[in-house]
Design a protein around this nucleic acid. Sequence first.
DNA 1: CTCTCCCT
Length: 831
Amino acid sequence: MTSNLPIDPILPELKQALAGRDAAVLQAPPGAGKTTRVPLALLDEPWLAGRSILMLEPRRLAATNAARFMASLLGEEAGRTVGYAIRYERRVSRVTRIEVVTEGILTRRLQTDPTLEGVGLVIFDEFHERNLNSDLALALCRDAQLGLREDLKILVMSATLDAEPVAHLLGGAPLLTSQGRSFPVQVRYLEQDPVGKPAEYTAAAIRRALREAEGDLLAFLPGAGEIRRCAELLADPPAAEGPLICPLYAELPFAEQERAILPAGRRKVVLATNIAETSLTIEGVCVVVDSGLARQPRFDPAAGLSRLETLRISRASAEQRAGRAGRLAPGVCYRLWSEGTHGSLLPFTPPEIRSADLAPLALDLARWGVADPMSLAWLDPPPAGALAGARQLLETLGALDPIGRITPRGEAMGALPAHPRIARLLAAAREWDDLPLGCELAALLGERDLFRRGEGPSRKSDSDLLDRLEALAAGRRQGGRGGAAAVERAVRYWRQVTGCGPGAPAADAERVGRLLAVAFPERIGRERQPGSGRYLLSGGQGARLSPRSNVHAQPFIVAVEVRGGKGEGEIEQASALSLGSIEELFPEVRGWTRAVSWDEREGRVAAREERRLGALVLASRQVGARPEETLPALLEGIRSRGLEALNWSGEARRLAARVRFVARVFPDDGWPDLSPERLAASLEEWLGPFLGGVKSLGELARLDLVEPLRALLDWARQRRLDQLAPSHLEVPSGSRVPLDYPAEGHPVLAVKLQEMFGLADTPRLAEGRVAVLLHLLSPARRPIQVTQDLRNFWENVYPEVKKELKGRYPKHPWPDDPWNAEPTRFAKRRG
DNA sequence: CTCTCCCT
């Protein structure tokens, strides 16, 4: 502890803050030395009273490195005063006072020992990354602190300037800020946002940066595809000075990653994914070229699948990337977007909890005994929709009961350090005495896909899990070659955790399929047409097998990994399964359930009995529909065909039109709304009661709508309707002439002129508020005049009309004095 | 352009 670090001046203040409070927040940029300085500085504080410190790191490498470095400062090996625990490996002893752990470890420790016996302080390092597990661990830790361990202290350390909300969350904890140690980085934006493909404009920008600036160059690209393309573009023609081009992404074999990280002896261009933003530090970088893009997973709760999206990074992320150029000396960062666009970027990368698969978190909450997650302290609470989806899955897996409490099986699953699906698979393997196979599958599913990693066999189009099991076995026969080290280590781990005895897995397709089916019950697929390779999954999504898949011509499969497009996903890993197994594993499919639906082609209600697994119909038979179950299907049929499919008699149309007219004139008198939209929306209420036993369009056609419509009016309103808007009007000739009530404008009375002799005043409706529009007709019922002023017609228009038409209709009366002529509907009597 | 990164 000789050299001075930027964090040092603040340590006394930090000690004091923690002495008086149960929590503190320390904000310190990279290079301040917080990770290795803070735990050792606090070790002898009196409030710690000899208890130990747990420190969380987001990555295994960071955890082991921090522990080893601190141990070396004490002149010890890791495992004495300073130890660590990561998956597969724990190095601690009775004298250990500082234990550095990765995030999942703390959650598991809290579950088995909620009081954190013997621990006095929990430090959350790099909390700004906002990983799902650190958010959960902090929520649980705070809950333990408030309920069980008032003497437990929490210290949150964060690199970026968003520490205020955490301090607030921890009850107004003191917020301390430290300087960092880094060199200035000059940031250069583009004039305008680039057009074209990221690989192409990034390659162009790299060529320019190599001319303009000195030193090794680190470029950030969204994925391996862009990195390969960019490397090709830089190789042809070779960039100036012919620098060494080093791709860097997680799937790359370790040796190649090392080549990118270590000094090369000549100028180097590293093309990296997000892996270089936080997890790996590259020596000698003075120039950063940032495409501004990253690929991020988004879990779709409806489909139960994640898909990758290429998104613009946040300003905080851009800051972090730029900082990589200033670790050793002043540097330059080329941002491949405009300064205007920079202002529109998100300030921080959204926390993982907002878009992740929440099934593991939901099981952890249930184990913790939290019914309502809102009772815990969250910076961002788990989104309700995703959480509901996660609980649904857990219920399907048998881990939760229908009201969301953990079941004994759920307890057993939660005790296994794996995703609930894999835990379910292992539980089934134990039950079926198939543990060797279960351990291999758990390892294959839990690690990166064997056929996708750069160091392994590269038959990436094979989608059958049996092929992967065979590849594992073949690798073992060849003496451990095959690059499946991570999977093999996981196999050993699971064999140890489950107490699985020796013995080779019995890897026949059916056993594999059955184990996978219980873990992925909503991804059981049935082929749509034989040989099509296109499947409907029990969860309702569609998916297709690659044409080069080895899972051929299987009517039923389990699609374990589906790479999601928005429509049909591509099945990356699957296994065949028999119908018999499905029936055995999911007893509910053995029962027949009735399904009544509208058969559009036949135009009738169809009732079937079906055996189904989620969206899959495994068998179906036609049955007769019972009268009491036809209504919803019939209404669905009417809706699909529209109101006009109903039997609108003239009388029914007129009735509806009259009611609409009255409702228009007296809008506040409570007349029912009989607009087509409203009628369509309320079919069930007004038409439903008249549809008893109706099953087909033919029967529907026999139902006159007059009665259902009239039923919407009580007796008093029916009487009032007849007064306000009669269906017919009596004219001077004695005829009862039908009135037409159009949707807009005045009601129309179309009547022969001769029937109106002697009438001066235009008839009025609706208590005299609305005059009818007269369509005066010739004896041949041709329109002569449209008017609302009958008196004016007789006096000024009729003489002209008479002259014109008298010759054409000689048998009809055309009196000179229409005021005193007898109105008639007939022609003149003969002779 | 064919899947980012990490973790029990």
